[in-house]
Simulated scan of single mutants.
Amino acid sequence: MNIIVCIKQVPDSTQVKVDPKTGTLIRAGVPSILNPYDHYALEKALAIKAKTGAKVTVLSMGPNQAVAVLRLALALGADEGVLLSDRAFAGSDTWATSYALATAVKKIGQYDLILCGQMAIDGDTAQTGPGIAFHLGIPQITFCDHVDSDGQRAVVKKLIEGGHQIMEADLPVLITMTLPVDYVAKYPSFMAAHKAQDKQVSVWTAADIGADPHKLGLEGSPTRVSRIFPPAARQKGEMISGSAEEMAAKFVEILKKESFVK
């Protein structure tokens, strides 16, 4: 069984700020991390590997420093890492990114299960995973917080409004993973991280994967981000205290004052 996990290096969202003049993210000096949703997807892939002996390949797209998250994945137990790194990929939106990743998946060759994080915390679009499935022409199941497989079928627990839905799918299939409420990421030991330095990491260009250059970068991206800005700060809320009857009366008074009720 062959599993491919798509991962991304992202800035730590707790420390990212927006430049008020340019409307772009200030990435300088901000530490980069493995996207949490991808981290969880990787852990589920490794759990399937432990049970079935599957081969796990991690795939990412980004600048050369993104090798760091591939090394982390290898230290956790992945078998091979592939990084797409080329100026031709610069400026790609989710459509162009999913095309590039799907083209790389085809070059990797055999795959039974593709796992992706639900979304990247630096974009929150949740579009790349479904885009990969579209370009590959395979089924997809999104927003899952659990996945298992015996090498023939995948069984998932998909989040739906008000609960969960248990679904099964024949392989190959692409699954996007959300995060359980109580999720705590696992990290490798020092020795595992040291040994991972000897594992294979391939760096591929657009030419290496045979990608159409007109479908990459800004030229291949139908969407544009004009600017990014933080939401306006809200006024501090008013706290109401007292008995239930007193708080209800105050609440009604506020609603009348704001003309929500007469």
Rank of each mutant, 00 (worst) to 15 (best):
N2E: 15
I3D: 04
I4W: 11
V5H: 08
V5P: 07
V5Q: 05
D12M: 05
D19H: 01
D19M: 02
P20A: 11
P20T: 06
T24R: 13
T24G: 06
L25K: 05
I26Y: 04
I26P: 00
I26C: 08
G29E: 04
V30L: 03
L34R: 00
N35I: 00
E43A: 11
L46I: 05
I48E: 00
T52K: 02
V56Y: 03
V56T: 06
V58M: 04
M61G: 00
A73Q: 03
L74R: 05
G77C: 06
D79K: 06
L84C: 04
R87C: 07
A88I: 06
A88H: 09
F89H: 06
A90N: 12
T94I: 07
W95C: 13
W95P: 05
A104E: 02
K106A: 08
K107Y: 09
L113Y: 07
L113Q: 03
L115P: 01
C116I: 05
Q118L: 14
I121A: 08
G123T: 05
D124T: 11
T125D: 07
A126N: 12
G129M: 03
I132M: 13
A133C: 10
F134Y: 15
H135F: 15
H135Q: 15
L136Q: 07
G137A: 11
P139N: 02
Q140A: 14
T142H: 09
C144Q: 03
H146V: 12
D148E: 15
S149G: 01
S149K: 01
G151N: 00
R153L: 09
R153C: 03
A154K: 02
V156C: 02
K157V: 10
K158E: 08
E161W: 04
H164A: 13
I166L: 14
A169C: 09
V173E: 02
I175H: 01
M177S: 05
L179R: 05
K186I: 02
P188Y: 01
S189R: 04
M191H: 11
A192V: 10
H194Q: 15
A196I: 12
A196W: 05
K199S: 04
K199L: 09
Q200I: 14
Q200K: 15
Q200A: 14
W204N: 00
T205W: 08
A207P: 01
D208N: 08
I209R: 03
G210L: 07
G210Q: 06
G210R: 07
D212I: 13
D212S: 10
L216F: 12
T223N: 14
T223G: 11
V225G: 06
S226E: 13
S226K: 11
I228Y: 04
I228G: 03
I228W: 04
P231C: 02
A233V: 10
A233H: 06
Q235T: 09
K236I: 02
M239H: 14
I240Q: 14
S241M: 11
S241A: 12
S241Y: 15
S243E: 08
E245V: 13
K250L: 08
I254N: 13
K257L: 15
E258K: 15
